[in-house]
């Protein structure tokens, strides 16, 4: 198992593997988000309390849950990179960070646009919103730290340590609605119990959550491939690709 995994730590193999996986992720992402969003916007029944404004849920919840999932992915990759010295994991972590930042921004923005008609205000300083904002700052910190080291091997180490320390924030976001009385409504999807939503509303949401996951995966693969090339600029196979690209 370890031998098999380590063979993918080789830059050229991981680059090619990312290339083969990419079309699958792209197709799944487009299909899932297409179906989920159309279903959610056109066919899901209207919420009896919130009217049609609840349709923001189909991007808000996927973005929010994936912003945490992406952070866990980044921190896991950093951990693997630091402990087992696998550089491909460092590059993966560096590729996820900007995507996570954008997704977190989307979660915050759509939340604000939903909060305005429902709560009468764009923003409240409650636990869920504040901790999600901290998540955005953590992503930005990781990006800034990674950018400020010349030596990218060190940069990945440093950013990785920060990412791992920041994991503390994830359970705070997840359980903030249960721990504090908050304006934010509690989770609508429950894995172990019955969900508090009807099926027609719920299925497009679940489809979109998976779709966002696939989309983040696809963008990560794209960025990962570029990162592999940038970090291996001295290798012959990268130089061959560069000559090909210029002559095109």
């Amino acid at each position: 198992m370890w031998k098999w995994l380590n063979s993918y730590a080789d830059p050229e193999r991981s680059y090619k593997l990312a290339g083969t996986l990419l079309p699958w992720f792209v197709c799944l992402a487009i299909a899932l988000i297409g179906v989920g969003t159309t279903w959610g916007l056109l066919f899901a029944p209207m919420d009896y309390q919130q009217g049609d404004s609840f349709r923001i849920i189909y991007i808000h919840v996927p973005a929010a849950s994936m912003s945490m999932a992406a952070y866990m992915g980044m921190a896991t990759a950093s951990f693997i990179g630091i402990v087992w010295q696998i550089k491909a994991a460092d590059w993966a972590a560096a590729s996820i960070a900007p995507i996570g930042a954008v997704i977190t921004f989307i979660a915050l923005f759509t939340g604000a646009a939903w909060g305005k008609p429902m709560w009468g205000t764009w923003w409240v300083w409650d636990a869920r919103l504040t901790s999600e904002l901290v998540l955005l700052f953590l992503y930005l910190g990781v990006i800034a730290l990674y950018a400020s080291f010349e030596d990218k091997v060190l940069a990945a180490r440093a950013a990785g340590i920060l990412a791992i320390v920041g994991v503390v924030n994830i359970p705070i976001i997840k359980y903030s609605v249960d721990w504090w009385s908050s304006l934010h409504q509690p989770a609508t999807i429950k894995i172990t119990e019955k969900s508090t939503m009807t099926g027609d509303m719920l299925y497009p949401l679940i489809i979109n959550i998976f779709g966002f996951g696939m989309m983040i995966g696809a963008i990560t693969l794209v960025r990962f491939r570029a990162e592999v090339l940038a970090r291996n600029g001295m290798r012959p196979w990268v130089r061959a690709l560069a000559t090909q690209e210029v002559s095109k």
Partner: peptide, 27 residues
């Protein structure tokens, strides 16, 4: 101290330091 240890080798660590540790101070 975590943030300082991360930025001590950098020449322009000061502004970066605040970006790194103020979010951790919020709780």
């Amino acid at each position: 101290a975590i943030g300082v240890a991360l930025t001590v080798g950098l020449r322009k660590g000061g502004v970066l330091l605040s970006l790194l540790i103020l979010p951790l101070y919020i709780p």
